[in-house]
């Protein structure tokens, strides 16, 4: 393993990181939006979202990535690989995040809401000032856990030819004929990324527990 292979590996790690990062950012917000819409219990939309969540949880990421990337052209949409990858990861993670946010909604204390109403706050203000900050703290461990699941699922984007941290090992071994070292190095990089997230989850859990005290 020379400097160049390490450089290629780091490039792969960067691809994995930025695509996952974008998917996480959109997925967390989209999950919140879905949870909000579901809490409103609008007749048809609610059922549609339930089906979406159930489907997204059952569909393997590899299948979803291929589906989005291959089906888009039949509708006349020119699909960029990276965008297809981000879309698939986002659709997947948003469904899980929606359930995490919804659990935080359902467990939010009624007393606080009533107190805020009694103080003359409108629903929007209650949500922004009272509910969201606390829900964020209580959901954070779950959200971070989902982030590490997303990174562990991210090699699925390799199936449409994105050169991520997993796929790059094929490229390197095609030149060096030694597949073992790059795969082990990639594994080490994944371990670093995901260990950091697990550490973050631990810290988030401690903070959430302090809130419930």
């Amino acid at each position: 393993m020379n400097a160049q292979t390490w450089w290629l590996l780091l490039e792969g790690a960067w691809t994995t990181a930025w695509i996952s990062g974008v998917a996480i950012a959109i997925g967390v917000v989209a999950g919140l939006a879905i949870a909000l819409v579901r809490m409103a219990r609008i007749p048809v939309i609610d059922q549609v979202l339930v089906i979406y969540i159930s489907l997204a949880r059952a569909t393997p990421l590899v299948t979803l990535v291929l589906f989005i990337f291959l089906v888009a052209p039949t509708f006349g949409i020119v699909m960029n690989r990276n965008i297809a990858g981000i879309m698939a990861l986002t659709l997947n993670t948003a469904a899980f995040n929606a359930e995490i946010w919804r659990a935080a909604f359902l467990s939010f204390s009624r007393e606080q809401k009533e107190a805020a109403l009694a103080c003359g706050m409108t629903n929007g203000v209650i949500f922004r000032r009272i509910m969201l900050p606390q829900m964020f703290t209580t959901s954070l461990p779950g959200l971070v856990n989902e982030m590490s699941f997303l990174i562990k699922g991210s090699p699925a984007i390799a199936v449409i030819g994105i050169v991520d941290l997993t796929r790059v090992t094929n490229r390197i071994s095609a030149v060096t004929y030694e597949p073992l070292p790059p795969i082990l190095a990639a594994a080490a990089l994944y371990m670093i990324i995901i260990s950091m997230l697990l550490k973050l989850q631990d810290m988030a859990e401690k903070k959430a527990n302090r809130l419930t005290m």
Binding site: K152, P155, T166, T169, P179, L180, I183, Y190, M191, I194
Partner: peptide
């Protein structure tokens, strides 16, 4: 704990592409 920090595909790669080296 190591398994918990690895993506599944890396392990599959290790067994499929990596083991023949050994």
């Amino acid at each position: 704990n190591i398994m918990r920090t690895l993506p599944f595909l890396i392990l599959a790669y290790l067994l499929y592409y990596g083991l023949p080296t050994l």
